[in-house]
Design a protein around this nucleic acid. Structure first.
Lengths: 341, 341
DNA sequence: GCTTCGCATGGTAACGTTACCATACGATTG
DNA sequence: CAATCGTATGGTAACGTTACCATGCGAAGC
């Protein structure tokens, strides 16, 4: 592959002049420039960004470390991050951690070696260590979706607590009293907050919180299915399920169907996170919708600003609202279904 | 940020010994190694992959250039590509072209500068130029999903023709005769093949192909909606719609609903590409399902092999079967609905 | 006891680019 | 006409790493 020296030799100029043709064309006289351009064309020369990065300490690459691109929530984020990044001349490296800390650590290590210019990180667990391992190297980070208590970082996230609160209140208004909360891994801040919102709504309504209805699981379809199946096998059935996210809720719905129960007549289901409506002919899930596209966009903007003007901006937290969307998966409680038939 | 020389100085060895500790630890005596490791720890040294890449001509990075990560079909592919790549120590740069050739060209140019080790490319148009611009630089490519006549490349794709044929045959069996084909951009091989399959099924059944029922559009929800709306506004209604992909079909379904028609009683809909069933409570779309996860996996394996053993493997084409999945969006033709009421 | 061997370690140069400073030369100014 | 300036171009070194070859040294072999 031709290098800058080959081009320089062919155009009878010095390598630095070739460099200028690419980076400061106006600083090269038109005839010389033309000669260089002809040489570039003839040799099929493509500047080597690696060498450039080595000199400039800039890779024009961002890392997007999330849990699973397969969930439309993260898909939207990936899309907006890539849109915003490529608009500013940055590429995006995609990583799926599956909320596995070992995988996350491995990714971070490789990406730090690669000297990406910045990280958009969805931490597998809401503790500071991962974030700090990046900050220690003076590499900008923006945390997506989750709080990281104790770390001095920019965060862009949704108001999970309010979302869960709103959904729980909605269920209470429909007459539900036995509402099971299928929550995510409690090491993750959103899981914690969603339980908090659930608790607050119950408490405000004067309904005692029964810990028996709170079940921890993962943010996956399989986990939602497993936990819901367990619940449905017990003597006392809940009249409503609150899924910690869309995956969990969809898993639970499968369990409900398999148990021969009707939705929403026998049991209501609601969750945080919507599913894009064009994916579902008739959207039927009652949700607290987040704005993932917006979230990715805002986060990328913050990150690029940090990269462009390091050390200038104080860390900030952007809290995005959730929107309650009422659909057919929730209905008034059916008094006959308090006990298993 | 500490470099290899700082570590060497602190450990009182030469830089090359530090390098060996990372790359050939067994070639360094245990006591020296321990001293180096202590120095690495103390300085928080992280090897610079940029410099390494400059020497070795390897970036351990693949480019995944597809149309739109937002479509679950491509999402699955992205997931499998990333799984396979990270398992082999490679990272993946994600790019969305939206089937726009200018965007694609821009991405390819940047990625070639970055010296990615290989490309997984979904060409915006089924012609050789994009692929050739990569091959000219001696960079391995595997084309995903589409044929590229005239280019000597590995291709992994589904049998679109058979998928469309199967769906059309199914509709014919249900008694449909006026089947509209909402096809994709004809510059893309899959769009072409799906029309071919549609034509073959009709012809085999002795039904004359009416060009009036074949409508070109984009592979997007908006396009599906627009084209279907147009069709539904005409005097003679089709009794069934064949969507070129899931996006198009979902757009069409929206148009059908807005037109006050019932699905499938008034009009049947089928398409190529499934939607993961856990995203949809009750899957209802009749489809010819592809295997995107598998497709990404196979393609990545091919690409990594090309990277590892350049020039050894003859180019090959892997053709994956589609699977007909019959659901509720297709039903026997309703004789009353041949003409607009 | 001398040669040979293998192991641990090091010096030098190179990967491709660009920052920094230098230089050549024609144009402008007093 | 000399001094000054600005523009176009070039030389050298450096970014951080590793390939290649060299060296030193103790152990094994005859």
């Amino acid at each position: 592959m031709a290098n800058i020296r080959d081009v320089a030799a062919l155009a009878r100029v010095s390598p630095i002049t070739v460099s200028r043709v690419f980076n400061n064309p106006e600083r090269v006289s038109p005839p010389t420039r033309a000669r260089v351009e002809a040489a570039v064309e003839e040799l099929g020369y493509i500047p080597n960004q690696i060498a450039r990065s080595l000199r400039s300490n800039r890779t024009n690459t961002l890392a997007l470390v999330l849990t699973d691109i397969t969930n439309p929530f993260w898909t939207s984020i990936a899309r907006s991050v890539e849109d915003a990044a490529s608009g500013q001349g940055f590429n995006v490296i995609l990583c799926n951690t599956d909320e596995n800390e070992a995988k996350q650590e491995e990714y971070l290590s490789v990406l730090l070696r690669k000297r990406v210019d910045g990280f958009l990180l969805v931490p597998a667990r809401s503790e500071a260590s991962a974030v700090e391992s990046i900050l220690r190297q003076n590499v900008p980070v923006v945390v997506l979706d989750r709080r990281v208590p104790g770390a001095e970082v920019d965060v862009v996230r949704s108001d999970s607590e309010a979302g869960a609160y709103g959904l729980t209140r909605h269920l209470i208004c429909l007459g539900h009293r036995q509402i099971a909360m299928l929550c995510g891994p409690l090491g993750v801040s959103t899981a914690q907050e969603r339980v908090d919102g659930y608790r607050r709504a119950l408490t405000e309504a004067g309904i005692p919180v029964d810990e028996h209805w709170i079940r921890e699981g993962e943010y996956t379809v399989e986990s939602g299915y497993a936990v819901a199946s367990e619940l449905l096998a017990e003597r006392v059935l809940p009249s409503a399920l609150l899924g910690a996210n869309n995956f969990v809720a969809m898993g639970a719905i499968r369990a409900i169907r398999e148990a021969g129960l009707r939705l929403p007549e026998d049991i209501s289901v609601a969750c945080i996170d919507d599913i894009p409506d064009w994916l579902v002919g008739e959207p039927f899930l009652t949700v607290a919708a987040q704005s993932p596209y917006d979230m990715g966009l805002r986060a990328t903007e913050l990150l690029l600003r940090q990269i462009r003007e390091p050390g200038v901006h104080p860390t900030q937290e952007i809290l995005l609202p959730t929107e309650l969307v009422l659909r057919r998966s929730t209905a008034a409680v059916n008094v006959n279904h308090r006990e298993k038939t």
